[in-house]
Design a protein around this nucleic acid. Structure first.
Lengths: 192, 192
DNA sequence: GAATAATGTTTACAATGTCAACATAAAACC
DNA sequence: GGTTTTATGTTGACATTGTAAACATTATTC
């Protein structure tokens, strides 16, 4: 397995190292050569597994979606409450995830990765999250299909926009305070 | 003025060139050396006017805020309608601006510029826009001061989040269609 | 008019993404 | 079992970039 020459599981090792760098020093510190270095491999080795830097970033973003999914599962495990309460709970979990993993979140939703839909794995991760939200809104009460879509988009846009205000900078000094998050989520839940 | 050696107005010329590059080829194509080249000046000349690349980007973002302001003025000139209609009108102008100048918008609101609040000019531009929105919401009807703030944040976050869905990629294939924009803005106006 | 400050240029450097040429281990095939 | 092929590493090279230092030229100030 772990020869001197052949690594054995380099691709996953690169992903692990990449996530580590993103979480500790941010995406700006993530260079291909550094990922290689910290995985104890030559600077060109990643090219045997990735066409270029962006395709590695795609895998890191996909890993991010998996973690976000787990966060949702945990926050909803054994949750009993109205549809609106459930949505508020998930929204808060979403915001906390973004605040805890700012650069990973940016990688998933920002413009660092261009034309994301061209990457099948990325699209799957994104789309399954959208489908989950759609289902949740539809379970909250009967409505026309088109209406559920616009409701989901509006809610998600609100939370996502708010999160980027927190992460990137805020037009208002109170952005991101716990009290404001609660009030924002109350409003979002009322979109139903 | 325009000597062979001393340019005369290099700083503004750099800003003009930078905006040109952003609008035509995007922020990824904007390198300091290229801005210098297209301004017909040596690659280190910008350093007499800017500490580093980021400080030039800050000036470009500020120019973006000025343009967005003008867009608002135009879209509201002679507008007569309810407060809700006015907000919907401005929201649509905002979305159109972002779609027309995607990379400039990203520069203004994205994470390309770190800790924006440290730049006084940037903060002023940002803050005056926030104040304007706040005033508009307060004019729509009497409400507690704290309530106006959360209302503005929610509205702005929704529109901003929606815009980044359009620019970066969309979880839903209909994101960005004219009909959807109208329906989203109806919802936003109802936040009042 | 000389000293000084402002504003250019040239040269240099380290870091980065990427490619080509080469080396070695693993797998497939006879 | 040995040979060929493929997968997966390494080394070395290159152009581009941001940035700093040293130097040149023009403006400004005393």
């Amino acid at each position: 397995m772990t020869n001197a020459y052949h690594h054995g599981d380099l691709k996953n090792a690169l992903i692990r190292t990449g996530l580590e760098i993103i979480e500790t020093e941010g995406v700006a510190a993530l260079t291909l050569r550094r990922v290689a270095r910290e995985t104890r491999v030559s600077h060109a080795a990643p090219y045997r597994h990735y066409k270029n830097k962006e395709t590695l970033l795609v895998d890191l973003a996909i890993a991010g979606f998996e973690r976000l999914s787990e966060t949702f599962d945990k926050s909803l495990a054994g949750f009993t409450g109205s549809a609106a309460e459930q949505i508020a709970c998930m929204g808060k979990a979403y915001i906390r995830f973004a605040m805890d993993h700012p650069d990973l979140y940016r990688l998933m939703f920002g413009d660092r990765i261009k034309t994301k839909t061209q990457y099948a794995g990325f699209f799957r991760a994104y789309d399954s999250m959208y489908k989950m939200l759609l289902e949740m809104v539809q379970n909250a009460g009967p409505r026309a299909a088109g209406d559920a879509a616009i409701t989901v988009i509006t809610m998600w846009a609100t939370v996502h926009g708010y999160v980027t205000f927190i992460l990137d900078n805020s037009p208002d000094p109170y952005v991101g305070s716990p009290g404001q998050i609660d009030r924002l989520m109350d409003k979002v839940a009322s979109f139903l």
